[in-house]
Design a protein around this nucleic acid. Structure first.
Lengths: 346, 346
DNA sequence: CATGTTTCGTAGAGCGTTCTCCATTGTTGT
DNA sequence: ACAACAATGGAGAACGCTCTACGAAACATG
């Protein structure tokens, strides 16, 4: 509307300094609320910043100090559990000067590596990695360059902090729930990574192990039946097809992830069987889909918001050097029973 | 492993220059493949970069030149359509020097505004905004500061480019599909924003208008029945409850978004009605949930990948000043018929 | 009143790039 | 042979901020 806005250039620290009749150093101090500035000067500088609508230039700050930017590496935007984590992180950071930025990581080690480098090139102050598939060595090497918190990898490390769901317990909850209902032939669908390495620390491995231990605990070791597939709709589908073709069918299927459970549902549907009358199905992650009426999937709920919140807290502690030892936080999940599980027909 | 890595400091342009026995200016030229570099020097510099494992420092580049970073503002990570767009953007950028970074925007104008500022403070070269809820003025003001492409807002602007799905056509496809099946009482669930402003350019408004026009075209203007609610599971649920309580029930419900359709499914389920025998339900967006066996929702598919790809292309054109006029690309959606729609019972 | 001790404020050198000149070549035209 | 010009490489000033010194007060101490 206005005819001539002569120079819509952004105000810099120099502009503010001129306006307030102080040095740029002084303005910088106010900005970082560093030591050595009188209330009077505080006031003047803040006023000048407000008048000029000044916002510090994060990239420029980064050249010497911090960027106040946290990079979050997220492998798969489609996984409905991850937004929960991100929201937890973002909410925590809202009360600080830091800002989260997401790097779309992709699901391969190469693409995740690329994104991590890209974020470091952009000088993030710290990195939160959600379920990274990187080899441990790469993780630790990165963690020595920049503060890192890893979400969803078990194994402890001296170089980074960790936040995990106790998948061992979670898998146990499912088995107990099904066994309590009277099931004995409880099968499990596991995610078997074709890639090399990182065996025991990934959630899928721990979930399978939890299933195994719980089956033993309940005296069902003879019924242990694990199908290796992938945590995806297609993976769940093929695994279910395989299980349904067994001479003696399982009466319950525990899929290691909700997405896979959906695939199971599809297969069961196609086979003309009914849930839960003919077969009980349980998932893991308690994603929003699980709660949907027509699906109503029994699942394990992890408090993603809480986990994200804690990850952010740990990272800030690390960035601000308030703590020297590495930490691994483990959160206990809970079971949410829905209509996809019931007592087996006798 | 190695006992003494004395200085794991990152290599800078100066290190490369020293190593190759040239000036930093020369290295910079190679980096930007600018004019005035002999093949011999090219070679030497590239070798030095490789040996030192040098990666340019995006933040520092930004001080004078570009950061090669594209900000993508995404309002809701839970919306399963958005990852499609992001993937399209990321794939396009993969073949360039640019890198996408996501800003978790939130669904309010304030939070989106904050994120946009935060990204600009971090000196992104351009911004892709996914379905922003900002007032048009704010959008254009931002667009005058930094190159912008907006996805999912109809209205044309001189200051930014746009990429949209032709929601008018999409809504028409649904009505035609249902009318062809023999339905007459086709109700529509609209997202009515409580916030002020931005009326005609938002997708929801266009979808409702498309519904209206199509109903007229099919001679069903007397049956037009729009319930204002929100595009969410809860919103779809309450709207459906309202519709099912009508003295004369609709035989088909066209929810403006898949999430809302899920809510409808829940309500119908609870009411003890069957789909599609008692009621046909259609959604919009063809999210992954729609395809799931137990849900099998007829929906409108937009090619998110293609839209994201084009948004990235437009943005790069704008950043590199290859084009002066603003552009609005409109993509035609297609209908995906599934089991949630069928002929009404006579 | 000379001497410490705080407290407040500024100068000015970086941080890792880009980019505008400018200097030095070698090549061409006359 | 000499100007004119293209091609190549480098010097050095930005960019917007932080941060280490250091100076100048103001105050307390003996």
């Amino acid at each position: 509307m206005a005819a001539a806005e002569p120079l819509p250039r952004r105000a810099t620290i120099t502009d503010v300094a001129k306006r307030a009749n102080v040095s740029t150093a002084a303005v910088s101090k106010v900005l970082r609320n560093a030591y050595g500035v009188s209330p009077a000067m505080q006031e003047r500088v803040r006023a000048a910043m407000a008048e000029l609508d000044y916002r510090p230039h994060a990239a420029a700050r980064g050249m010497r100090g911090q960027t106040y930017t946290i990079g979050v590496v997220i492998p798969d935007l489609r996984n409905p559990f991850f937004p929960e984590l991100v929201e937890g992180v973002a909410d925590h950071l809202d009360s600080t000067d830091y800002q989260a930025v997401l790097g779309p990581g992709g699901s391969t080690a190469e693409s995740q590596s690329r994104i991590i480098d890209a974020l470091i090139d952009r000088r993030v102050d710290g990195l939160i990695m959600i379920a990274p598939v990187l080899p441990r060595g790469r993780l630790e090497q990165t963690a020595r360059t920049v503060p890192v918190v890893v979400i969803g990898r078990h194994g402890k490390s001296a170089d980074y902090d960790g936040v995990v769901d106790d998948d061992l317990v979670g898998a146990g909850l499912v088995v107990d729930h099904l066994a309590d209902l009277g099931h004995r032939r409880i099968a499990h669908i596991e995610h078997r990574d074709t890639a090399r390495g990182i065996p025991t620390t990934m959630p899928q491995t721990v979930r399978a192990e939890g299933y195994r231990q719980a089956m033993q605990r309940r005296g069902l070791e003879a019924e242990i039946d694990i199908v290796a597939s992938t945590y995806s709709e297609a993976g769940g589908y093929t695994a279910a097809v395989e299980l349904l073709a067994r001479p003696v069918r399982p009466t319950a299927i525990f899929a290691g992830a909700d997405v896979a459970a959906i695939g199971v549902l599809n297969a069961v549907h196609e086979a003309g069987l009914r849930i839960p009358e003919d077969l009980s199905v349980a998932g893991y992650d308690n994603t929003t889909v699980a709660a949907m009426g027509p699906i109503s999937l029994t699942s394990i709920d992890q408090d993603g918001h809480l986990m994200g919140d804690n990850a952010a807290r740990l990272l800030l502690e690390r960035i601000e050097r308030k703590r020297d030892r590495a930490v691994l936080l483990s959160f206990s999940p809970t079971l949410v029973a829905r209509r996809s599980t019931a007592a087996p027909r006798t």
